[in-house]
Simulated assay, not measured.
Amino acid sequence: MIVKNEEKFLDDCLKGIKEIVDEIVIVDTGSTDDTIEIAQKYNARIFHFAWNYDFSQARNFSISQATCDWILVLDADERIEKKDLPKIRKIIRESKKIDGIYMTIWNQGGNPASISVHYLVRLFRRKSEIRYKGKVHELVMVPNATHLSDIKIIHLGYHLSEQRMEEKYLRDLNILLECNHKEPNNPILNFYIARTYYNLKKYAEALIYVDKSEALVELPPQNLSFYVCVLMMKANILMVMNKLHQAESVCQKGLQWMPGHLDVIHLLGTIYWSMQRFTEAVLYYRKYLLIREDILKDPRKGFHLRAISALGKAGEVYSRLAEIYFKEGNYIGAIGEMKQALKFNPSSPLYYYNLGTIYATRGQLMEARHNFQQALYYQPLFQKARDALDKIQLGERPC
């Protein structure tokens, strides 16, 4: 592990894996909190590394200190589920000709819609030729055979405040721009810069770099999943800039290369919903829900995509389907979809308010009152819900 000021996360991480590892190697890059003291509780071998804005160098220093045959890499804000812990040694025993093991990283943010997954090698043999590359968004290079496991790593790092996330993005951006100055024609660097600008809400700058990344990929692309990620990034940028027809065109290009790509299908549904082309929106949202369910049953089915950002969007999708049905006068269908949305986000005041509105339109005022009350329970200053309740009390229909 490489760490810096991780007192908030480190104890739970080490507590979870201490029983299944033979040694714990901690490389600290300059902590000023209780990180070191927490690591000492677990008899970790602690080393210090002067931070030089190069994640790969720090990673490679950490794995050079390991003494066991296999290395498991975790960050302090990551957890391995208890049921998956025994699988680690089992995989090691069975991997006679395998050098690296992919695991599924589940990124959990501050709300259900922010859940995403990606697939990375996190368990690998201790070999001199297996090392990390990339100053930021570093990846371990395993030249020989790899295997995809069903082990899940929960990443909590996106629970940070907006200020802390902005600090992380700005740190990454400075490193990426420095690297890009040396390698201006690297499509991966240009993509990461575009994504970082997008996260910082600097969309014009993001579009410049994603266009450059797309132009630098030779067709047909050797790394198909990366190329479609570039197209997805471009479509997202165009959509927030309200260039919906261009975003639609880019998404359709992505589906030509990867027809079942969950993120592209979800984004197309959202673009059509924004354009009020509801028939197409329903079509793509239904496709999204089916493919999503398939991947959730077996996350390994999403491995060919390498990263999936739309897994947590089901609540939003059901809510938008409810809105479409409501506008079309299909109130029964709208109620069903809204109830589905609440299963994914049962504390959403907006979802309760929308459900109350549908019931009120049908004249079902008891059900409407209950849902407006729920909206106010979760957001006491929700004025629209308060106004709707007041109208019901006066014997008026709120809608």
Rank of each mutant, 00 (worst) to 15 (best):
G356P: 02
V21W: 05
I20Y: 09
Y377H: 15
A247C: 02
R93S: 15
S31M: 08
C399E: 13
R125V: 06
V136M: 13
L177K: 13
V27M: 03
M338N: 09
E129I: 13
R195I: 09
L177R: 13
E81S: 00
Y53Q: 14
L289H: 10
F9V: 00
A113G: 05
L139T: 14
P86L: 01
I101Y: 02
Y42N: 07
Y272V: 02
F382M: 07
L365A: 01
N185G: 04
N185L: 09
S128A: 13
W106P: 02
V210S: 01
W106I: 12
L10A: 02
I324H: 11
I63M: 09
Y272C: 03
G16C: 04
W51Y: 15
K301M: 00
W257M: 00
D99S: 11
S64R: 14
L296Y: 04
E218H: 11
Y169W: 14
K384E: 15
A44Q: 07
L311Y: 02
T32R: 12
S31L: 06
L365E: 07
Q373M: 15
K96W: 04
Q364W: 12
Q246L: 11
I308L: 04
E280G: 00
I63V: 12
D387W: 01
R89A: 11
R386V: 07
D22Y: 06
N199Y: 15
Q252D: 00
L305R: 05
L176V: 01
Q163K: 13
K41S: 08
A66F: 08
A307W: 04
I208G: 00
A58E: 09
R125Y: 12
G110F: 12
F47I: 07
